Amino acid sequence: MGETPHEGLIHCDWVVANYERLGGLVRDSALAFAALFIDEAHYLNEHQAGRTRNVFVMATRIPRRFVVTGTPLLNREVELHTLLRMTGHPMGGLSLREFTKQFAGDKARRAVLADSLRGWMLRRSKSVLKDLGMKTRQVRYISPAEGLGTYQQIYDDMTLQAMPKIVKLRQALERLKTPFLIETVEGLSEGDKIIIFCEYMATVQLMQAAFSAQGIQSVSLVGSDSPTKRQKAIDSFQTTRR
């Protein structure tokens, strides 16, 4: 939903929102939905977390609810109870105390729980992925025209201990890829975009400056970004043309 005002959502057939934006939807009781699909549901394993409480509230207003996750669910029974409650399953209507009393604690109780969930939990093995296209990998070897001197200086520095030296060498190698990446981006077709994964923050900043100097628009998303900043980066990536 990005930065879309809620009044603009009333006539939408579908609304896609991340968990950080769910609080706004919860507060807007004028929005009515026929179904709720909760992706990456394993992020809601803590029943007292704010995002989980928001989903609980949304679930009370929506008649059909589905949860999807690629992560095993039966790690802790309390986590499974949370998802059962979201979907409206009768077992989710039990109090957490009663649920754990009946289905947690030993192998036999867990077996009863698994048997009771056969009609609710649909498991798919990796064999269902055979209809997808094959993943292709391409390894590119590059020989930077400049910058190897810095790498060699670090390598030859006998004052550095092993681990700090390895980090500095990896940083130097990561930065040396910048000209190649700029060349790759400039060779893309109109409208194409590329995602670059970096290991070090300094590389992100260096690459953004290098891209900007070449007139290439870019956005960054790093682990220290706030949820709001992350969403703005995602929105910008989706709407910005190269």
Rank of each mutant, 00 (worst) to 15 (best):
G2N: 14
P5L: 11
G8P: 01
G8C: 00
L9A: 03
I10F: 05
H11K: 15
W14L: 12
A17Y: 07
G24K: 15
S29F: 02
L31E: 05
F33P: 05
A35C: 14
E40L: 00
H42V: 01
H47C: 13
R51G: 07
T52K: 02
R53Y: 03
R53Q: 10
N54R: 02
P63R: 10
R64I: 11
F66I: 13
F66D: 04
V68R: 00
T71I: 06
L74V: 09
L74A: 07
N75M: 11
L80C: 09
H81W: 14
H81F: 05
L83C: 01
L84R: 01
R85P: 03
R85K: 07
G88V: 02
M91Y: 15
E98W: 08
F99I: 06
F99Y: 06
T100V: 15
T100W: 04
T100Q: 14
A108E: 14
V112A: 09
D115T: 11
S116K: 04
L122W: 08
L122S: 14
R123L: 04
S125Q: 11
S127W: 04
V128T: 13
V128I: 14
D131N: 00
V139C: 09
I142C: 00
Y151R: 06
I154L: 07
Y155M: 07
D157C: 00
T159G: 01
T159R: 00
L160P: 03
K165H: 01
V167Y: 01
A172Q: 05
E174V: 05
K177S: 06
F180I: 12
F180W: 14
L181E: 09
I182Y: 08
V185S: 08
L188M: 12
S189D: 08
G191V: 08
I194Q: 08
I195H: 05
C198M: 12
C198E: 12
Y200K: 02
V204L: 10
Q205I: 12
F211Q: 06
S212G: 10
G215D: 06
I216D: 06
G223I: 08
S226W: 01
T228P: 02
R230I: 09
R230E: 05
D235W: 02
